[in-house]
Design a protein around this nucleic acid. Structure first.
Length: 322
DNA sequence: CATTAGGT
DNA sequence: CCTAATG
């Protein structure tokens, strides 16, 4: 009885994927955010159908399917193809734009600029471009520099080792500090794409300076943090490396006041499905749950003060889940 | 959906 | 201030 684990897939998933591909092209290459949205809503609307669409009449009048999208679906139904999609796929300018976009810090806007105004067609051209240092800002340069490393997953065992260092150094700064690595690692994943650390302190009000202190010591004394992408009052984003024989990894560190810590912990541990689920049960039980707090909802719609939470357990208790 | 950088 | 990019 251990045979069926893969979840039943959507009968129209191929069509849905095509629609998403069309959507992404509009958003990243053409900069047509409305077309993008149109494809998305169309896709989500067809995603609700639970049988294989055979004729266009199966979806006529469906929400979000206008004349033009309907026409594309029609051609998909007859031939297995969509002309527009094929031509998009063959567009090498589009391909170049998508390449640029692999670099952290380069989004659609910048990618378009690089390709259109600077005529850059590939990562290699970008790397060797004479004006590279002017064309890219600091984080984009980091992204370019670590491109291949960042595309590698981080094995759980490596994260385990980092966890040890992280926790010991953080608590060495102040033994009241409490920190954990969240995200897929905390869910038990065997590899993760980055490291997400949550930190809290029971008393100190000046969390920002704590964050700075942590970042500074991890940088200067241990050289665990090798680069800073951004640091603010509550969130650090950067690069770390457990030792020089290992790859550079993306790491985020965020600080929360202790009264919000567990809601944050729950939320950042995810996954998204669980989060949505929890939010809806909260709602059903007359609460409002988010990344910072859980509060009681009065029937008039008024929210109570954030309820006291001193563990993740407390949250489940409020929601009478387990 | 909120947080940061950075440009104007 | 806005706009871009990350998560």
């Amino acid at each position: 009885m251990a045979a069926k684990r893969k979840l039943a897939e959507n009968p129209n998933s191929e069509l849905i994927d095509f629609l998403h591909e069309l959507a992404d092209y509009e958003k990243n290459v053409s900069r047509m955010i409305h077309k993008y949205n149109a494809y998305r809503k169309a896709a989500s609307s067809i995603a609700k159908i639970d049988h294989k669409i055979q004729s266009i009449t199966d979806i006529k009048g469906l929400e979000g399917i206008g004349k033009k999208i309907a026409a594309k679906i029609e051609q998909y139904l007859s031939t297995g193809k969509i002309k527009k999609l094929e031509t998009n796929r063959g567009d090498e300018t589009g391909a170049a734009i998508n390449q640029m976009t692999r670099v952290m810090g380069i989004g659609p806007a910048h990618a378009n600029k690089l390709v259109h105004q600077e005529k850059i067609k590939s990562i290699d051209e970008l790397r060797s471009h004479p004006k590279r240092d002017q064309l890219l800002n600091k984080t984009q340069l980091l992204g370019l520099n670590y491109l291949e490393e960042f595309e590698q997953k981080i094995p759980r065992d490596e994260i385990k080792q980092m966890e040890i260092i992280l926790l010991r150094e953080i608590t060495a700064i102040d033994n009241q500090l409490r920190a954990e690595i969240v995200g897929s690692y905390r869910r038990g994943a065997t590899a993760s794409s980055d490291i997400d650390v949550l930190v809290t302190h029971p008393t100190v009000a000046k969390l920002p300076s704590l964050l700075h202190k942590i970042v500074e010591t991890l940088t200067k004394q241990f050289h665990f943090i090798t680069d800073t992408i951004s640091v603010g009052d509550s969130k650090f984003m950067g690069v770390c490396q457990i030792d020089t024989s290992k790859l550079h990894r993306r790491i985020d560190i965020r600080v929360f006041p202790s009264e919000q810590y567990y809601c944050a912990l729950l939320y950042f541990t995810g996954n998204d499905q669980l989060n949505r689920h929890m939010r809806i049960v909260a709602q059903e039980q007359g609460y409002k749950l988010n990344e910072y707090s859980i509060q009681k909802v009065g029937s008039t719609g008024t929210l109570s003060k954030p309820l006291p939470v001193t563990s993740e357990r407390d949250i489940f208790d409020y929601l009478q889940m387990d």
